[in-house]
Design a protein around this nucleic acid. Structure first.
Length: 272
DNA sequence: GGAGATGTTTCAAG
DNA sequence: GCTTGAAACATCTC
């Protein structure tokens, strides 16, 4: 599930436990999730400490602790964070549970594509030199153009999915961007004229902003609920998964095919 | 039973 | 050395 907006959404679900001392750490070890994590250090260090700062970048989440350590999380394809009652009993797919007096903070992931990192006294691995997020001021038109030129032969869809270029953009966001920019997903990245590249740049930023606001609830006090009704009918998102879905612009059938190694939904009559 | 799923890594080929 | 594309990963749902 998790792309930019969902990542922010799930990260916020641990908020009720922030600032509260961690009484116990429970983990399901010998799992892919912990493949490059020192689980002994994690458990030992977190007990008695508390989470004090939440950060997200693209699809990554990190929590800084009071003592200055960092817990890094990646949700993979099916990862989720939840806050449960303090007596919560972990289920089969719950891999990490942090208990405070008022909550059990749970990381679950059925498919095990997610990851947990822990670093003592420093930033989590890979957070030292991060590329600008599309909503960042540093994500300029020229920066975007350089990405298109670097990956000139690759289909636009594949380029948009590159996390070192467009952190946070996932499969549905890439399709949404291309649909709003009216560009065919299989166009080579360098085939756009100046106007098309400009449109694509604008839509990348727009979709990222929309995801933050509508799904991540960045401008709201309360966490939004999580159901499709939140997403406007005018987005491709609402139509893309259903068989027989139609383009909200043309009313004609949407097409699904594999482009850039992923299922891609697009509107042939609308995108050129 | 089979196909496909909103992600990343790894490897081979160009 | 760089870019690109395909396969692998593990489990659930339709």
């Amino acid at each position: 599930m998790p792309e930019l907006g969902e990542v922010i959404y799930y990260a916020k679900r641990w908020s009720p436990g922030i600032g509260e001392p961690i009484g116990s750490v429970q983990l399901n070890e010998a799992k892919r999730i912990f493949r490059d994590c020192d689980t002994v250090a994690l458990a030992k260090s977190l007990i008695g400490d508390s989470l004090c700062e939440r950060r997200t970048h693209g699809k990554r989440i990190a929590f800084r602790t009071q003592r200055g350590d960092w817990l890094g999380l990646h949700l993979g394809m099916t990862g989720r964070l939840r806050a449960e009652a303090p007596t919560y009993e972990p289920q089969r797919h719950d891999h990490l549970v942090l208990r405070t007096c008022s909550r059990a903070l749970v990381f679950e992931d059925a498919r095990l594509f997610g990851r947990v990192h822990f670093s003592v006294g420093s930033e989590p691995e890979g957070w030292a030199a991060l590329p600008p997020e599309p909503s960042d001021i540093a994500f300029t038109r020229a920066y975007f153009q350089a990405i298109l030129e670097r990956h000139s032969k690759a289909p636009l869809k594949a380029v948009l999915l590159r996390q070192e270029c467009f952190p946070g953009v996932g499969n549905w966001m890439a399709d949404e961007i291309l649909w709003r920019a009216r560009l065919r997903p299989n166009r080579p990245a360098s085939s756009l004229n100046r106007r098309q590249a400009g449109d694509c740049y604008t839509k990348v930023r727009e979709v990222c902003q929309d995801a933050r606001k509508v799904i991540g609830g960045e401008e709201q006090e309360e966490l939004p609920g999580f159901h499709n009704d939140l997403i406007p009918e005018s987005w491709l998102f609402r139509h893309r998964w259903r068989d027989g879905g139609t383009c909200p612009q043309t009313g004609k059938p949407l097409v699904r095919e594999t482009i850039g190694g992923r299922t891609t939904c697009w509107s042939p009559a609308w995108q050129h």
